[in-house]
């Protein structure tokens, strides 16, 4: 196996009185698409911000390592981090409508980042910006480059955001809900674009989403998060069709799917009872209060992720009673 591009070990993010992400470990290899799925509040966006070292004021990384191309980003100073951000590690934010500066042309915004990280002349940067707009399939880039963001549709703006993100050829691109704010018809185009760029530029792609339909088609590996913990990890085929963790099962049962026999027309969608807030301060498994299979062992300790079959991890004590007993002992 190749050396992973990004390796996160035991990452814990702390607010003064809460731990929204706990002991999270995962890795992304070069050229690989890893999707993190979870509902709102599961800590997936905070994880992305932690990787960029852009956590909001009160939050901080309380423990863990973020090894990116062999260096631990947690130890980086802010000036050192500035050299990484936008250059080797880039991020696309959720809201394309508001993530572009309204008073600068899109060309100026692409040129800015090129000139900051690549030391290009103004003329060279502009030529490169036109190439980039072409790369993200903005029609008529020569004219579009001098447009202000409000002249562009949401999909176009997201393409421009992608152009800015990949301008300096990042090794890893983090896309935080890149399609949530877009029309369904545009979503597939944008994801196709990201997938193509990943292949052409050989970068890793960390896709953060709550949309399971996105996962099946575009991800190489899926990490399911619940209340700040990784509850299951595996290839999409396994996660979407043979999940082992009760939360993943519940999540799938609650999603309308087009596969035969599971359409919403065949019956009501099942909900997962309760809310994610009930995991606050939970002792053992964070999903226990809402779990249909909860057993006494679940209250004891946070369940470790167990390999249920090669390449498929799940963190549930019920799956492996012996493991749960070991954890107690």
């Amino acid at each position: 196996m190749t050396v992973p591009l990004l390796e996160v070990h035991d990452l814990t993010i702390a607010f003064p009185a809460a731990w929204p992400v706990r002991n999270l470990s995962f890795s992304v290899a070069g050229g690989e698409t890893v999707a993190i799925v979870g509902e709102s509040g599961s800590g997936k966006s905070l994880t992305a911000l932690a990787l960029m070292r852009l956590l909001p004021g009160a939050a901080r990384i309380s423990s863990g390592r973020i090894d990116f191309v062999g260096q631990d980003l947690v130890t980086f100073s802010e000036p050192a981090m500035r050299k990484v951000r936008g250059a080797r590690l880039a991020m696309i934010f959720q809201e394309p409508m508001t993530s572009l500066n309204p008073v600068l042309t899109i060309g100026a915004q692409i040129v800015d980042v090129l000139r900051l990280h690549e030391n290009l002349s103004r003329r060279a940067a502009r030529a490169r910006a036109i190439e980039l707009l072409d790369l993200v399939r903005v029609a008529d880039p020569h004219r579009r480059i001098d447009d202000y963001p409000h002249r562009l549709s949401g999909g176009m703006r997201q393409r421009v955001m992608i152009a800015i993100a990949v301008a300096c050829g990042p090794r890893l691109l983090i896309a935080d809900e890149p399609t949530t704010a877009l029309d369904v018809t545009i979503q597939a185009q944008v994801l196709d674009l990201l997938d193509g760029l990943r292949r052409d530029l050989g970068m890793g792609l960390l896709l953060i989403t709550h949309d399971l339909s996105v996962v099946g088609q575009w991800a190489d590996r899926v990490i399911v998060m619940y209340a700040g913990c990784k509850v299951e990890e595996g290839v999409p085929d396994v996660i979407l069709h043979r999940p082992r963790h009760p939360y993943t099962e519940g999540l799938l049962a609650a999603s309308p799917r087009t596969a035969e026999g599971s359409s919403y027309r065949d019956g009501l969608l099942r909900e997962i009872r309760g809310s994610i807030a009930s995991a606050l301060g939970e002792q053992g498994c964070p999903f226990r209060p809402r779990c249909p299979k909860a057993a006494p062992a679940c209250t004891l300790a946070p369940p470790p992720a167990v390999v249920v079959q090669p390449g498929h991890l799940a963190a549930c004590p019920v799956l492996n009673p012996r493991q749960a007993r070991d954890a107690v002992a």
Binding site: L54, D112, V113
Partner: peptide, 20 residues
């Protein structure tokens, strides 16, 4: 959001204040 996006591109404070 565009200020957050600018930080995500590695811009420093002076640049964000003046340019963004």
């Amino acid at each position: 959001d565009f200020v957050m996006a600018a930080r995500g591109l590695g811009y420093g404070h002076a640049r964000i204040i003046v340019r963004e």
